[in-house]
Amino acid sequence: MTTDDWVSAAQSALRAGTRSRSFTAENPTAAVGNGGRTSSVLGPGRKGRPCITLPAGETVTLANAAGAGEIRHIWCTVTNHTGAVGFVLRDLILRMYWDGSDTPAVEVPLGDFFCNGNGQRSLVTSALIVVAPTSGMNAYFQMPFSDGARITIENQHPVDVDGFFYQIDYLEHERAEVVGDLRFHAEFRRENPTAHAQDYTLLDGVIGRGVFLGSSLTIVALERYWWGEGEMKFFLDGDTDFPTICGTGTEDYYGGAWAFQDRLSNEFEPEVLTYSAPYVGYPTYVTRDESKQAVYATAMAPVHGMYRWHVPDPIFFHSDLRVTLQQIGQVGPDLVERADDVSSVAYWYQDTPSGSGRPLPARPQRTPR
């Protein structure tokens, strides 16, 4: 968007009576003139409640907006470990509900939603997700609603999680018709391990009209050699055995090439190159476990994390959508079927406020191994 486009949109919003609001720990209802009022040792209105505690086993409401509006920015941060066994970024579950629906349109572990899969932190610098030092997690998805919005976070970690900081910025509209009928959705999936010769499914069961926005993918390589020859496939509007859109390989789909490796510097031990760009990225490559779960930092199966946003190249569907990824690798010149630990988040817009109701994998099925 150019500056002229931004100013034009701002002028239109002002004429329509749009107002800016924000949910925070200090102003949990986003009430007018109620920000930063709590007291600290410095006195009233001096940063008295910048964060909250997430009690173990409980769900906390972060935002509850009435009427029509549009969430434009979410920022939060939290530790990625405690003294308890577990991975905080996989144990905190983010849910979003639109227009009074009881079925969440978004149900994703917190870290995975922000392209930090496998319970690990990574820096991400993209157009829609930014994870800045140290674990400042930002989302810039536009999330419209016509009749209320609710955002919650559930703590499935074994103990309380202290120091959860957050800010949710949204626009409050006077008229519901300005937001249209498409609603933001996101869904987490994991298979550990995947099945040989069976494609991994990122998304299926989507019936209706909408646009696929993108995905984040985490692969823990459980087998030797190169893992990323699988093609991303988009089955659109009645496609059955074969998709309308099919890529050329996993690293290719996420914007890279040649196994993300620089073979010119060392043919036998090529350097793996990570990157993070506005619409594509491979920000995560980890081969040593340095989490608090390990007594010593130790070698582990390589973890690969990727994302892609279909902003300049949207994928529209008019009746149904299914997205899959082949589990294919390469040994020497030969293609081979593989079985790895694969997890993903699919992001899309659809003409319904409700999610599919597909059960979120339980904590034991989400826990990194």
Rank of each mutant, 00 (worst) to 15 (best):
Y275W: 15
Y166C: 00
R224M: 07
T61E: 13
P44T: 12
I315C: 05
T287V: 15
I168H: 09
Y254K: 06
W227Y: 11
A139S: 15
G136T: 01
R46L: 13
Q198G: 02
G100C: 09
A65C: 07
G255E: 05
P55F: 13
I168G: 04
T194D: 02
E191P: 00
F260S: 06
I207K: 14
L335N: 08
R224Y: 07
R72Y: 09
D99E: 04
A10K: 10
R15G: 00
P312Y: 12
D340L: 02
D5R: 09
A259T: 15
D289Y: 11
Q293D: 10
W6P: 00
W75N: 00
Q261R: 15
V78N: 03
V206E: 07
G83L: 14
D102I: 09
L360T: 05
H173C: 01
I168T: 06
G163V: 03
F260E: 04
F268W: 14
E107R: 02
L222M: 07
D252N: 13
H73T: 01
H318L: 08
S216Q: 11
I315G: 03
N155R: 06
C246A: 12
V220M: 11
Y97T: 02
A176T: 12
I207C: 11
S276L: 03
G86E: 02
V286H: 09
D147V: 02
M1S: 09
Q293T: 11
A339T: 12
R46Y: 13
C76F: 03
D320C: 09
S135G: 06
Q120I: 12
I245M: 08
A186M: 08
C246M: 13
A297N: 10
L202C: 03
G86C: 04
Q327V: 14
L213R: 04
R21H: 11
E229W: 10
T61M: 08
W226D: 01
G148E: 10
Y200S: 03
Y347S: 01
G357F: 04
G255M: 02
M96F: 05
L92H: 10
G357D: 01
P361S: 06
D241P: 00
R308E: 07
D160Q: 04
S20W: 14
I328H: 01
M143Q: 07
G83W: 15
P104I: 02
Q326F: 05
G332C: 05
R288H: 08
R308I: 11
P312F: 11
Y282L: 05
A25D: 01
F114W: 03
A257D: 04
E251M: 06
A346G: 05
T2E: 08
D160C: 03
E229Y: 11
T61W: 10
N80C: 04
D334C: 03
A68G: 01
V331K: 10
V295I: 15
R322L: 06
Q142K: 09
V323C: 03
Y225I: 02
A176N: 03
R95I: 01
W348M: 07
G35F: 15
Q350F: 04
P50D: 05
E107S: 07
P364G: 05
D181T: 12
Y254G: 00
L128W: 11
A56L: 11
L202Y: 15
A299G: 07
A221G: 00
T218E: 06
T59K: 01
T18E: 05
H173R: 09
G83Q: 14
L62V: 08
S20G: 09
Q142W: 08
